[in-house]
Design a protein around this nucleic acid. Structure first.
Length: 367
DNA sequence: AATTCGGGGAT
DNA sequence: ATCCCAGAATT
């Protein structure tokens, strides 16, 4: 065994050896200082499930209104299973990562049709549902069922990287496995759900990425990075590379008071959402030429581009776009769903019944 | 092990 | 502008 491994093992033991007092101080802080959130204290597994899916890669403040609206519309797994996917996506509109909505809906139907309407009773069973990975399974089962299983999210990874003063990349496989292992030891005790939530709350409120509030930390005496003065160097992560930029043209084709819309394929980017048709400019191509080409390729129609309605900038995870919206006249051809699963002419008064990508919502009100 | 999936708030 | 969020699925 190398010296690095030996040292790491010794430092990890120091936290785990004081596990009981660590848990006690963290939980005391949590019960006094935790934010009052609508989903906090909820032990209905279905409601915890919906909440955890919505909160994946999503700030609590951003997710809470969506959780409330979703549970109002679909109060039980049966109601969700019977719903149309289009209505589920409409409630998800603007939240992003729409695969979550599709998987949640698929999982609800699975519970009703293949599991006699009974939700899983262990983390291991939860993880077999689509959209439920190790984190979500651990969160649901510890919070709603009291199972002593860890929940390692982005907050907890950062908290542990500082507590243990880890100098390895917290996103690499071996380090992540080690963090799951440590959380697995720490969560053993009463109220595992509160413990998991307390670790996340600490990361969100005190052990923040940029400006950690160590003076307010209930467990700073257990923190290796605090003792070593390396808090600002932890955690170690790989930097993300710059994302490419794409120039996009979009056609607002109006006929008899209705606009031509397409429904995106059920998987992939923005899957299942409705959009104004268009696409990326090719090298050296004009906006007008791109509009004519895209509408021919994707809908099989000829159009005549008119005036520019709006220019919208929007950032995705792996690229960003400038979206140019043009009024267009329909010249010939019946629109067909070539790149879409469905195309139709829609009155503006019916726009609010469909789910659109955020980039489309930014110019919808101008039409 | 890398990449693909949105959108927004903090810095 | 950059980082990162109560991550999971796919390649």
């Amino acid at each position: 065994m190398g010296k690095g491994v030996e040292k790491r093992a010794r430092l990890n033991r120091s936290l785990l050896d004081r596990k009981a007092s660590f848990r006690r101080r963290l939980l005391t802080w949590y019960r006094r200082e935790a934010r009052e959130l609508s989903f906090r204290g909820e032990t209905d597994p279905y409601k915890v499930w919906v909440s955890e899916i919505i909160l994946q890669q999503t700030r609590v403040d951003q997710g809470v209104p969506y959780i409330n609206r979703f549970l109002k519309s679909f109060a039980t797994v049966g109601r969700l299973a019977r719903a149309d996917l289009d209505d589920v996506l409409k409630l998800w509109e603007g939240l992003g990562y729409y695969t979550r909505a599709r998987n949640l809906h698929k999982a609800a139907k699975k519970v009703v049709n293949e599991m006699e309407g009974r939700l899983p009773s262990t983390a291991e069973q939860w993880e077999r549902l689509p959209g439920v990975g190790r984190y979500t399974a651990g969160a649901i089962s510890s919070i709603a069922l009291g199972e002593k299983v860890p929940a390692l999210d982005g907050n907890v990874k950062r908290v542990l990287a500082r507590l243990l003063d880890l100098d390895s990349n917290i996103d690499d496989g071996p380090t992540e496995r080690r963090l799951w292992e440590v959380m697995g030891h720490l969560v053993q005790g009463r109220a595992p759900g509160d413990f998991n939530q307390a670790m996340m709350e600490l990361g969100a409120r005190v052990c923040k990425p940029k400006s950690p509030l160590c003076h307010a930390c209930p467990v700073k005496c257990d923190c290796r990075a605090h003792a070593e003065g390396t808090v600002f160097e932890r955690p170690v992560r790989t930097k993300k590379r710059a994302v490419p930029h794409h120039e996009i043209v979009v056609a607002a084709v109006k006929k008899n008071g209705r606009y031509l819309l397409g429904k995106r394929p059920p998987s992939g980017l923005l899957g299942g959402l409705w959009e104004f048709p268009g696409g990326k400019l090719e090298r050296g191509e004009s906006h007008e030429a791109a509009l004519i080409r895209e509408l021919k390729e994707e809908l099989g129609i000829a159009i005549q581009p008119g005036g520019l309605v709006a220019t919208v900038n929007h950032a995705y995870t792996h690229f960003r776009i400038t979206l140019n919206v043009y009024r267009c006249r329909h010249v010939s051809g019946t629109p067909r769903a070539i790149a879409h699963t469905e195309v139709k002419w829609v009155r503006p008064s019916d726009f609010d019944r469909l789910a659109f990508p955020k980039a489309n919502l930014k110019f919808l009100h101008l039409l």
